[in-house]
Simulated assay, not measured.
Amino acid sequence: VVGGVAPWGYLALLLGVACMAGDRFFGVTSGWIRDVATAQAVQRRLQVLQFDWASESVREVLGPADGTASEAAERCLGVLRRFSEDVTELVRTETADWMVEFRTGAAPLGIQSAGTVGQRTDSGASPGRFPLPPGAGARPNMPRQRPPEPR
């Protein structure tokens, strides 16, 4: 009975090693971790928006002590603008990081570890199979939708 179980054990071990190698090569777990981290970051920003919006709503209920209705509307629009710009920057950064990781391809098992996928090294390059072209490690230059608000 013991002799008949051993081949199945070795097959299960081989299958486990193959799954780990495939995960490391294709970056499934690191992609999932980045997805969860980005979703949590968006959730935190949404909570800040809800708090700021509630603060502005309370300010409106308490009365016009803080200025005119147009100033109140401007403050509310400022809250929405900050949220929109924050989430847009988060998405832009994550997309740029993903594009760099996608261009470099999957790294061999000896170079890549689950904790360093998509992170930059001290030299500014991302770990991967192929070197990045000059200037690819820099932030992409994306135009703003409108000039920044004077503060």
Results as ranks from 00 to 15, higher is better:
T93S: 15
L15I: 01
V36A: 01
Q119M: 12
P148E: 04
R120H: 06
A65G: 10
G115D: 09
G137I: 06
E149Y: 09
T95R: 10
W8V: 12
D86Q: 12
V87F: 04
V87L: 07
T38E: 02
L49C: 03
L11W: 04
L77Y: 05
R144F: 02
V28S: 01
G128S: 01
Q47D: 09
Q112K: 09
L13P: 00
A107G: 13
S57H: 11
M99A: 15
A21N: 02
F25C: 01
Y10P: 00
W32Y: 14
Q145Y: 08
Q119F: 07
R129P: 02
G31W: 03
R139Y: 03
G67E: 11
T116A: 13
R75N: 04
S126M: 09
M142H: 04
S123Q: 10
V17F: 06
P108L: 03
Q40F: 00
A114Y: 08
R81S: 07
Q119T: 15
R81A: 06
G31E: 06
R59P: 00
R82F: 06
E101C: 03
A54F: 07
E56K: 09
D66R: 15
D86A: 15
V79D: 05
G124C: 06
S70P: 00
M99T: 14
R82P: 03
W98F: 14
S113D: 06
N141A: 14
V91G: 06
R34Q: 07
Q145W: 08
A69S: 13
G115N: 05
W98D: 09
F102Q: 13
Y10D: 05
Q47N: 11
V36T: 05
D66H: 15
E85D: 14
L62Y: 07
L15V: 07
Y10V: 07
D35P: 00
A54S: 13
L11P: 00
A37H: 07
E101M: 09
A125C: 01
A21L: 14
W32S: 03
T116C: 13
G137M: 06
G110Q: 05
E94R: 15
E56T: 13
D23G: 09
A54P: 00
T88R: 08
T93H: 05
V36P: 00
I111Q: 12
R151V: 10
Q145H: 10
P133I: 03
V117E: 06
Q43F: 12
S57I: 05
A41G: 01
V42R: 05
F102C: 04
E60A: 15
G22A: 10
G4D: 14
L14I: 12
S113R: 12
R92Y: 01
W32A: 11
A69K: 11
A138R: 02
P7Y: 02
T104E: 05
G118A: 02
L132W: 05
V91M: 09
Q119C: 11
P7M: 00
R82D: 11
G4F: 03
F51K: 13
Q50P: 01
W98R: 10
T121N: 07
P64Y: 10
V117Y: 07
E149F: 04
V58R: 12
A136R: 01
P108T: 04
I33C: 01
P134T: 07
W8M: 10
G16H: 06
D97R: 11
S126N: 07
Y10E: 09
Q50E: 08
G63V: 06
E94Q: 15
T104F: 02
P108V: 03
G67T: 04
P64V: 10
A72G: 14
D66K: 14
V48F: 13
R44V: 09
A65I: 11
